[in-house]
Design a protein around this nucleic acid. Structure first.
Lengths: 364, 364
DNA sequence: TCCGGCATCCAAACCGCTTTGGATTTAACT
DNA sequence: AGTTAAATCCAAAGCGGTTTGGATGCCGGA
């Protein structure tokens, strides 16, 4: 009688009758084929020094036995972890924003297309540096994406020091030429948006911006101010706000301003989510969006907030972050594949799309 | 003159003057200490058969050299990948929803607290099964979380077959007792919400539900219908909709119904996002939310859509998905740590919170 | 006939860690 | 003094792949 020692199957032995597959390793596979591990490995990985016939045999047996190489072993042997890291500090993650998610989704598509894994670590703020160091020394990932660069960003220095390939989503002021990044043209987009409002006769425009210690928000503000300045106007701090881009942020501030002595006739908003809040405030004041008060928002093309249709709800500057995610991931994989060649950064342009939320300034 | 061969440093040699750390492995470390790898490994991992003094020496040298064990090697040796997988099929991910993100955020906290990595794979719909199989055979993760169970769910069978530990976010109908899950009481929550509306005199209530091939949406609908039935009322298909929970879904449908001959006086909505849409529609019809028309929504406590304050904007049933994520992750880690002991599932209760969006039916 | 070259395939080293199965030393007990 | 037990430490064998450096056999050309 046959004696089965369970441990032979690595403890994964499941049923004598069932397919007991899913447990073979390279050694067993090569034994079954009467070939060396070398040959089998090469056959499977498409190396040339293996005859077509052998390769076929190997392939067939491999999938008959349900063989798939153990990731850890392969990673150890090759020295590549085949994974990309995304570290998100608590502070960002407290306000876990959908834009991040959408970016991740895009990047994830690219990764899986290229056989890479995506690993995400949420860490305490003061452990962020640690997290990157660990990724590098423990070889957890072959590269990382840097999210949400601040105005006084420093992570890129660390990453260069520890020699961990990276791509920035956004731009690091002062380091544009020495880093690879994917960003949209924030300044230009907000400049155009502002010009549109100015053309419609609006002179008193409120800016509801993202957190201005972030680079993107600074650029947007600059675009806004540049456009005003070009027409000899100055921004009024009384109607500019900066915060996490939540719905209530939009509503509360809009409400307050609309009720003030000198209310804005238009709002330029950094996110659809807050723009929805602004629209709510306008409604609650008994006013009509696009008629009494105009709104232009930036639209990241989030999937759960579609702003499409023949005439979109919101007039907006639109740029797909998901697309940015895809491309950023591609750039990163490029860098990893050939570290010598400097891939060029990517400057995405936002479209300016006219929707229902803008109209000429009332009483003009 | 000293001749430095870069490859000696694994190519990671950076500067003769700088700390050229971050490259040592266990062997080098043990050489420096004149100890065996065994002893060093044990010292570092807290095994008892090492003297306190030695342990201290090891620890000091380790962090002087910036030693950290290579993850892949450790994983290969221990057979545990120290990672949890989340596979998200395209179809879900197309509509990459914020609820998922928030859950992930919660789970991520737990993982990092326990030294686990989180790996996310976005896959084509027809490769979902493959993805799970690969996770198991290639040992990519020690367990997975099953997201968004459908009414006719089958993934749990596969996972049991391939012996991959898992926890379900939500419940699998018919498999409640044989799987570990974390879910909120969807039926009860919607029943209570409906009762509240009925108590306020609303008789004609619209249900804007999530996709009803999903288990959670079915339960919610059941709660709604049960409450109606208990008062001898029947649900009217004309004012019930089911879809991805986007903003326009809420707005468009509410608009259509409000303009109909027999409009609802209240809406029961499955997500804040759609509820915002409903509120917009109400405003556009010149009506007032909470006075002319009532809304109760489910609130997943998404960070970018806070619905708090003294009197929250929306009356809601609230349950934090982030918390669910934390707990689901904990359960999963428990299962992995001690596979024999069946951890109990977790049934979260949603709070019913009165906000500004409900009021007695007009004209009562 | 002999040799170089090509096409195939293999044995063994290696990746960096954990862990088994002792070996050695020291302290403690008869 | 002679054993025994406890405390430390180590050599070497995995874990499951990839990759280097040949070995072997077969062919055509000189």
């Amino acid at each position: 009688m046959l004696h089965f020692n369970n441990s032979l199957f690595g403890g994964r032995f499941q049923s004598v009758l069932g397919i007991m597959s899913k447990g073979v390793n390279l050694r067993e596979l090569s034994n079954r084929l009467n070939l060396s591990q070398t040959t089998v490995s090469r056959a499977l990985n498409g190396y040339p020094e293996v005859s077509a016939e052998t390769r076929k045999r190997v392939a067939e047996m491999a999938d008959e036995l349900g063989y798939a190489p153990n990731s850890q072993a392969r990673r150890l042997a090759t020295g590549r972890s085949m994974a990309i890291g995304h570290v998100i500090p608590r502070s960002i993650h407290e306000m876990m924003n959908p834009i991040f998610l959408e970016f991740i989704a895009g990047a994830g598509e690219t990764y899986s297309k290229h056989g890479y894994d995506m690993i995400i670590s949420v860490v305490e703020d003061d452990h962020e540096e640690d997290a990157y160091r660990q990724i590098a020394t423990r070889k957890k990932a072959d590269g990382v994406i840097v999210h949400g660069p601040a105005a006084d960003e420093h992570r890129h220095r660390l990453l260069k020091e520890i020699n961990l390939p990276f791509v920035v989503h956004g731009r690091i002021p002062g380091a544009e030429s020495e880093t690879t990044w994917v960003d949209m043209n924030n300044r230009r987009a907000f400049e155009r948006a502002t010009n549109l409002l100015l053309d419609l006769g609006h002179q008193r425009i409120s800016l509801l911006n993202g957190l201005e210690h972030m680079d993107f928000a600074r650029r947007r503000r600059k675009g806004f101010e540049d456009a005003l300045a070009a027409r000899g106007l100055a921004a009024d701090n009384a109607i500019m706000r900066s915060s996490d881009m939540t719905e209530p942020f939009g509503c509360d501030n809009a409400m307050e301003m609309l009720k003030s002595d000198n209310p804005p006739t238009a709002f330029l908003v950094s996110s659809m989510i807050s723009a929805i809040g602004v629209a709510r405030a306008i409604g609650q004041c008994g006013l009509e969006t696009g008629k009494d008060v105009s709104i232009i928002t930036h639209d990241d093309a989030l999937s759960f907030l579609p702003n499409s249709g023949e005439v979109p709800i919101f007039t907006c500057t639109r740029s797909s972050v998901r697309y940015a995610g895809q491309r950023a991931a591609e750039l990163l994989l490029d860098i990893i594949a050939s570290p010598q060649r400097e891939p060029s950064s990517l400057h995405l342009d936002a479209e300016l799309i006219i929707g229902q939320s803008t109209g000429p300034v009332p009483g003009r």
